[in-house]
């Protein structure tokens, strides 16, 4: 019972945040100087062109009216239409085209980060104080210290232009070819994953060290269980909570990272669309992308909390 209530409260909180976020995003877009008509009509547009454009797309309406039209549209599942990226194209269709790419890259990066950090963090904690610990710990902090956009270019230099093993450009939608997406997405995913892996590994190491000293671990050891068994069942399991929690925290860096990375590697994702939309003053597109990011971050955090609640039921109270 307590858990259901906890879920409802959390979900309600997230919805409120999204609603406030919608207002916030709308206002932010309006504060940006510039004119979508210029972005759409180009350098030859006359004043009459501009006026006609504004009329056609309802930009001449008072802001509260525009906001209401947008909001009530969303309530009915209509995110409006693009005006400068693809005039008249429903924003929802654009999102549907691009969401899989961004999700794929994000999840790909997350998986890479989790796998790397699992090994690095475990080795560091189990062999605390030895060479391998120092190596893993140093590698982690080095990873954290690398700006992802710079790492992208270094990766291109080494793996694409130098060794010629991975493509530097040209993403394939995972829906068209999963293996193609894996290969094409490798460099961008790794560029995003490296700093995250560093963060994760450090958290895991610290958490493992702490649980290692706990009484129940000592007790389990004294029963004569094998080391790997003790590690998986007692130590790792209990160290998972801070590990999972930090994923929730990192997801906002993860999503933010896709913005530049998608552009460098030419991935048609939400991040690159949002940047193009922002420079083109395509209000509906940008607002929808921002909301999608908001929902994604809050959603992941919600899932993280639920997992933590399962791992440690005391949290729901």
């Amino acid at each position: 019972m307590g858990f259901i209530w906890y879920l409802i409260i959390r979900l309600g909180g997230a919805l409120v945040t999204i609603a406030i976020g919608a207002v916030f995003v709308f206002i932010l877009m309006q504060l940006i100087p510039g004119d979508p008509a210029i972005a759409a009509l180009g350098e030859n547009a006359t004043d009459e062109n501009v006026a006609a454009f504004r009329r056609m797309h309802g930009l001449d309406q008072p802001l509260p009216v525009q906001f209401w039209i947008w909001l009530s549209g969303i309530a009915q599942g209509d995110f409006g239409k693009s005006i400068t990226l693809a005039q008249g194209y429903p924003v929802w269709d654009l999102m549907v085209q691009r969401l899989p790419n961004t999700l794929f890259i994000a999840v790909y990066a997350l998986v890479i980060a989790v796998v790397i950090s699992f090994f690095a963090g475990s080795i560091a904690a189990l062999r605390q104080g030895r060479m391998s610990d120092t190596a893993a710990t140093s590698a982690s902090i080095l990873g954290i210290s690398m700006p992802d956009f710079w790492l992208s270019y270094v990766l291109i230099l080494v793996f694409s232009l130098g060794l010629g093993v991975l493509p530097a450009f040209g993403f394939t939608s995972p829906l068209e070819s999963f293996s193609g997406a894996l290969v094409n997405g490798a460099l961008p995913a790794f560029a995003i994953a490296a700093p995250m892996a560093g963060v994760f590994a450090r958290i895991l190491r610290a958490a493992l060290l702490e649980t290692k000293r706990k009484d129940y671990v000592t007790a389990a050891r004294s029963f004569g269980f094998r080391d790997t068994f003790v590690y998986m069942h007692y130590i790792f399991r209990n160290a998972l909570i801070p590990f999972v929690t930090v994923i929730g925290v990192q997801v906002r860096y993860l999503v933010g990272g896709t913005v530049i990375i998608e552009r460098i590697f030419g991935i048609a994702g939400l991040g690159s669309m949002m940047v193009d939309g922002a420079f083109g003053r395509d209000y509906a597109v940008v607002q929808a992308c921002m909301l999608a990011f908001l929902v994604f971050v809050l959603g992941v955090n919600l899932i993280v909390d639920i997992i933590c609640a399962f791992l440690d039921p005391r949290r729901t109270h």
């Binding site: 909180g13 409120v16 945040t17 406030i20 976020g21 916030f24 906002r252 860096y253 993860l254 999503v255 933010g256 990272g257 913005v259 530049i260 991040g271 949002m274 921002m290 990011f293 908001l294 971050v297 809050l298 955090n301």
Partner: peptide, 13 residues
């Protein structure tokens, strides 16, 4: 609530 909101946006965005 506002802090949560700001923290839910990707930082670079």
């Amino acid at each position: 609530r506002f802090v949560d909101l700001l923290m839910a946006f990707p930082i670079f965005v």
